[in-house]
Design a protein around this nucleic acid. Sequence first.
RNA 1: GGGCGCGUAGCUCAGGGGUAGAGCAUUUGCCUUUUAAGCAAAGGGUCGGUGGUUCGAGCCCACCCGCGCUCACCA
Length: 501
Amino acid sequence: MENLHIEDVNVLIKRRIEELEELRAKGVNPFAYSFSTDSDSADIKNCYVENEKRTVSIAGRIMTLRRMGKASFAHLQDEHGKIQVYLKKDDLGDDYDNFKLLDIGDIIGVTGFVFKTRTGEISVHVEKLFLLTKSVRPIPIPKEIVDENGNKVIYDQFSDIELRYRQRYLDLIVNPDIKETFKYRSKIITSIRNFLDKNGILEVETPILQPLYGGANARPFVTHHNTLDVDFYLRIADELYLKRLIVGGFHGVYEISKDFRNEGMDKTHNPEFTMMEVYVAYKDYNWMMEFVEDMVREVSIKVFGTTIFNVGGTEIDFGKKWHRVSMIDAIKEKTGLDVLNTDDQTLFSKAKAVGVEDLAHKSRGKIIDEIFEILIQDELIQPTFLIDYPVETSPLAKTHRSKPGIVERFEGFVTGREICNAFSELNDPFDQMARFQDQVKAREKGDDEAQQVDEDFIRALEYGMPPTAGLGIGIDRLVMLLTNQSSIKDVIFFPQMKREV
RNA sequence: GGGCGCGUAGCUCAGGGGUAGAGCAUUUGCCUUUUAAGCAAAGGGUCGGUGGUUCGAGCCCACCCGCGCUCACCA
């Protein structure tokens, strides 16, 4: 028992370690080096032909075990599902005695022929058995049956949500259905990448460690570089670096990677999250709206084969053109108030009436934005572009070509949730500097999410950035939407948790 | 951060002041087409943690830790 470094050793683990050593003593390596397979659980079931003796080699984890003396049944689980295997002493000889030292959770490879049992289950009759990895820690053992109506019923399902997030590997073993969501996530990202590549946009990488943070309103994480002896911020957005690349002459660039925001955590916020940002020269936000429509439609069809989704019981269609709603018009329609042209007094009392709090510390633009959130956001169910944002809340967006006080910005909403943010990018260095100064004032007023002045970014704009359309999509939330998940923790393999005690 | 709820065996859960329970899993015996296999027996717990009340605390009280829901803030 030299393996007692396992601290929470219990009788189950102790027994498995004894078995492991017994196997070793018999010349079996409990941690084999490799095994070649030529089939898998899905292939065996899909390609089954009655009365054909097909020999296969497969590998997987033992998930069920029914021993009946000199014969046993087990289910092996591989990436595609489960397949039953049948082992008997007559065929395996001494290896059958080794099999008695195996447990649920062990990973084995088998070679044998495919057959159907008396009760009709396609199975593999094992002729050779190889232990590939001994599992010393017992896994939760759910029992699965199919009832008379063909519904899958699971007993003792591993459901402790905290353990599922902390030990995702275990969750994936025991609740393999959750893999589907993560496979969709992977395909959605691949599909977005394909769409952007196809449009001639270049995938690039920009710094995560930044001396200044910018591109969004958020509090950052701070870290320290020892050799330089300076603090760096973990980026809250990619925006300012990607626009520098447009200045440098790239026609279009995009980046898909992690951003970090030092803020609260809940069902829609993880401290690190995946962002896709894209910038395209010579385009404006009108062009970008169509680009988003095309991209989401294509991703839907390529990944899910449909544009129609069920999101929390509501049917959403990405096949049609998205609605366009003006924030200012929508508020006017709802309240009769022209929020841009009314005086402070009227705006503030209306804001207070609908429930906006802490008015003294907020700009007019922020207050208008919050009135929208309270009165209208939840009503944007089908895919909708909300346009016409007040200038104060959008310091990196270009002013509207004809409407004063407004910027050329849109956000995409589906089922009341924001899924993207885009604008005609501000490329006037003088205006940009003025907007940064306004942010500094906002910070002095107590807004700790206000942006910083980025002198080098201004310098880049002074060299000249072509007219540019920019877009950001929160990938986690897009995946939540398309896979009908209500918690961000269910679309992130390892969501952030407090430290285990 | 506020409010509400939860934490008991490897897993799923009962038990709400008087010797810690069940099913599955584990061990032993029987069992060569079973499938929530079956039959018989056995082992397994610092009841999230620390204090307190009490003759006696999973149980009552206080504080702490973790998780969930919700509100506030944000993508």
